[in-house]
Amino acid sequence: MKVLIIEDEKAMAKEMCVFLEKAFYLCDIAYTAGQANILMEENQYDFILLDLGLPDKDGLQVLSDSKKICPNASYIILTARGDLEDRIRGLDLGADDYLAKPFSLLELQSRMQAISRRKSGNNDPVIELGEFSVDLNKRSVLHQQQGIELSRKEFDLLSYMLLHKNRPLTRFQLSEHIWGNFSDDDNDSNYIDVHIKNIRKKMVVFAPVDWLQTLRGIGYKIKI
């Protein structure tokens, strides 16, 4: 998967690049709309991550121009301007998703994956997790053809950890994913613990769940 990051904050662009490369994406960086144009003409991208606050051109203009050069890429708009107007106009112009700065890199990857899944027509393979299999499209967890009832939030939590498997995830990162802007770090960390406890309780009946590790004082990790 090839990603073009169009972002004028160099430190930000580099961090995004480092993160995405760890997740096996190939990244190019453009700091201006001009640089982005050159890169887009020379390369094919699967994803274009576009910061709307570029120094040389209006972000939404860049978006509509880019759509002409790279019509097949998926676009995610990144902006510090949280305006609803911008968001709606961005999505109208054909952006696939929108992330308000500051955003979590985990969230970015999760959105990118969701777009990929959508574009590939929901043909994700069923993911094996120990003795369980997780079907992201049907939102179901199976153990030898037997379904395990997880609540909506519990499934969200499990699939998020699965997406970021083998990475330590803090409680805040998890609660931010589940509750978005409504997450509350002082309280929700405890609720994450409760949800994880429930997931373990529901699944351990069928098979060991030692792949779900607790990191003391930090959070959780799915290790497979």
Partner: peptide
């Protein structure tokens, strides 16, 4: 928001570093 964004991505990447201790 911009510096906070940069800090957040920095910290998140740091967290993923395999060499760091508990």
């Amino acid at each position: 928001m911009t510096p906070i964004s940069i800090l957040q991505t920095n910290i998140e990447n740091l967290m993923l570093d395999e060499d760091i201790s508990e």
